[in-house]
Every structure is written in structure tokens, then in C-alpha cells.
Design a protein around this nucleic acid. Sequence first.
DNA 1: CACGATAACTTGTCGGTGCCAAGATTCGGG
DNA 2: CCCGAATCTTGGCACCGACAAGTTATCGTG
Lengths: 211, 211
Amino acid sequence: MPRQSYHHGDLRRALLTAAADAIADSGVTALSMRDLARRAGVSHAAPAHHFADKAGLLTALATDGFERLAKALATSRLASNSLLELGVTYLRFALADRATFEVMFRTDLYHADDPDLLAARRQAADALYAGMTDLPDAPLAGPATVSPARPAKEGTAELVSDEVREVGLAAWSMVHGFATLWLSGAFPDSTQEDPVAAARQILGRVRQLGV
Amino acid sequence: MPRQSYHHGDLRRALLTAAADAIADSGVTALSMRDLARRAGVSHAAPAHHFADKAGLLTALATDGFERLAKALATSRLASNSLLELGVTYLRFALADRATFEVMFRTDLYHADDPDLLAARRQAADALYAGMTDLPDAPLAGPATVSPARPAKEGTAELVSDEVREVGLAAWSMVHGFATLWLSGAFPDSTQEDPVAAARQILGRVRQLGV
DNA sequence: CACGATAACTTGTCGGTGCCAAGATTCGGG
DNA sequence: CCCGAATCTTGGCACCGACAAGTTATCGTG
């Protein structure tokens, strides 16, 4: 069915959601601009007007992903008030938006120096660092270190202490590693049915990791 | 310069190393069978005789990677006798063999059901689990649990206790997350110059991660 | 040593893809 | 109302992965 009007209406968003769908069931390698155009019912060169090239589309997809992740983390931090739940939120995002999540951390796929992309990524990182100090079960919480009333500001990542930064990276590494390993199917079958429950179990084992 | 003999000699290995090189400086997305053939000085269809298709070549690359990783982990376990050093070995492999490492955990890129691939992957997993129980600074070490003289056997992964498995997955998640995040350039600049030193620092922070 | 089977490689072709250029259509601000 | 700009189309180019059929070297077996 050919569409009525010459203009699509919201081709840009249509392409992004189509891309996420296509990646989700065929992998990013098989992603094709021309196929997305077909799905949206436009000619093969139409996408080029909204995204300079394929990398441009993936840049937009990744940017959108970082923004949504940042928002989800911020919401989770306020709602659950738990560091573990913050990690679970991270994992949930990776599972629900698997396609986007995979693209976000494949810098060879998009324009890694894009300003919007960098801003969104920093936003997400800040939301993660904020959990290190603000949450009651956080390792570095306490009135001596920070004043809980003060929310993390933009650009904070560069200013936090080495301790906060390092613990933050440790937590990030752990939950990110779990997400990517699970997504790649590297984990044993027992974790396959309910990855979130498995994550709560496994992430909790960190106490016994007395390296 | 055309080569002397009609036969290449060791085209299979030549293609694999060329692939690793190509991926290392252009990313796996830009990898092209025809380009590999050109690099090896053979016709564009020659690679198909050693690997059925592109996924077949990447399967071989990943299998080789898992085998080398398993060997490196086993060697490290015997030499350094430290769980932290086992993690460092994992990271070193990811850094030195960046291209191969990235392929290994991108199951959409190769034939994930290949028997050789699965065997090699299990080998690597076993080497990792072995560190959980055998090493002196391991969280689950002790004569009550295991006899240190008995090396891990094949197929062990299915038989170990839930505790060992979970702590193992926690450790694996952490070091794997660190490696992938670092490779994707997501970490702050301060870790960029010496990732191994940064890893020692950050992985050590696990104690303060009292989730 | 010969010779036939087989493995290794080549040439040629096909549909598909990303990107570029040039033209057609529609929208929107003066 | 109209002209510039944004949106989309058509056409073409070089490249890619896969397939088919032919050529050359190697190797096991008599």
C-alpha cells in the first residue's frame, strides 16, 4: 500500500523504531538502510535525508538509548532508593532494549565524537555515579562525605573523588558485564529463565569476592 | 607480486590472522572476505574453501580465541596463584587480542552452535571456575571444600555447587564488564593510559561494594 | 611410477547494499 | 501568493557475499 502523501510525516522516528526492531531479530550486522526504507514505505535514499549515513542513524539510536537509560536510572534511584535496584534497572534496560543497548557500547558502529551522543552518555554516567553516594545502602554514603540533599550536577563525573569514581566503575563493570554476558548467551542455562532474579543472586555474591 | 605456486600453503591461518588485523584497525563491521583474499594474494572466492561463509571464518576466529584464553587462564593460575591475577590475565587477553575478544562475545556474528566453538568456550569457563576454588586468595578456597591437588576436569561447570557457580559468575561479570567498557572507550580518561593498573585499583574496590 | 580422486584455487555472475548526484514534490515563512 | 527550503524519488556506481563451473596441484592407491 503506497502512502497517501508525498511526505511520510515522521520518517525519522519510524526509521529509528524500525531499526531497533530489525536489530532485535536479525542483529546489527544484518541491518540494512534499504530494508528500513522498505519497512517505512519510502524510497531507498530517503533515510539519507534524516541521517547522513548508516553510522548517523546508529548514532541517533545510541543517543536516544543513553538518554532513556539516564532517565530510567534517575527514576529508579528516587523510587527504590537502593543501589542493588539501580543495577537491576540497568539490567532491565539492557534486556528490554537489547538492540539499542548493544549498539550503545559498540563505538565502531557510530560517530563516537558526536556532541549529542557524548552529552547523553555523560548524563547516564552521572546518574550511575549519583547512586554511589546518594543511596542508603551505597558504600560511600554518609553525611561526612556528601550532603544527601544536594543532587548530582552536570559535569560532576570529573569532580568526584577517586574513591567514588573507582567504586562506581567497579559497580558499573559488574552489572555491565553481567548484562553483556547474559545477552551473549555465555551464562549457564540456569540463569536463562529469569535473568533478573539470577542477577540479584549473583550480584549479591560480591561480598564473597574478597580479591 | 603474484605468488609462485598455485597453492597458497597455509591460507587458512593467513586468513585468520589477516582477519584479526583487519578487525583491529577497522572494526568487524568493515570486515570483508574479498579484502582478506586480497591481503593473502588469492582470488576472492578462495576463502570459501576453508570457511563455508563469513560466519564460518568468525567461528574459527572465536574458537581459536577461546582456546588461547583457556590456556592463558590455566597458565596464569599455576604461575601467579592469585585470583586477582587471573582477572588481570583475562583483561590482558582482551587488550592484546582486542579484535578476537570482541568477536568471541558477539554470538550473532558466528555459528553459535558449532561443536568446536562450544568445547573451547567451556574450556575457558572451566579455567575460570577453577580459580574460584583452587587459588589461595579465592573466596571459596579451603580443604573442606576441595582438594587442591585435584585439577578441574572437563564438564565440571555443571557439577560445581551453586555457591561456586554464583561467585564465579560474579567475578567473571566484573572483569568482563571492565574489559568491554574499557574497550568501548566508556571509561574516563584517567584509566586510559594504563588499563591494567586501573583494573587492579578498581577491581580491588569490590570490598566496598556492600550491596 | 602412473593415474584417478580430491583438495585448492580461479573466473564469472547474481542479487543486494551504501553512498552520491540530480530531479520531482510538498511545506512554510515572507 | 510565491519562492526557498525541506522532503522524498529515480538512477547509477563500486563493492560485497554467495553460488556455479572450470583449472591446477596434491595425494593415496594400484
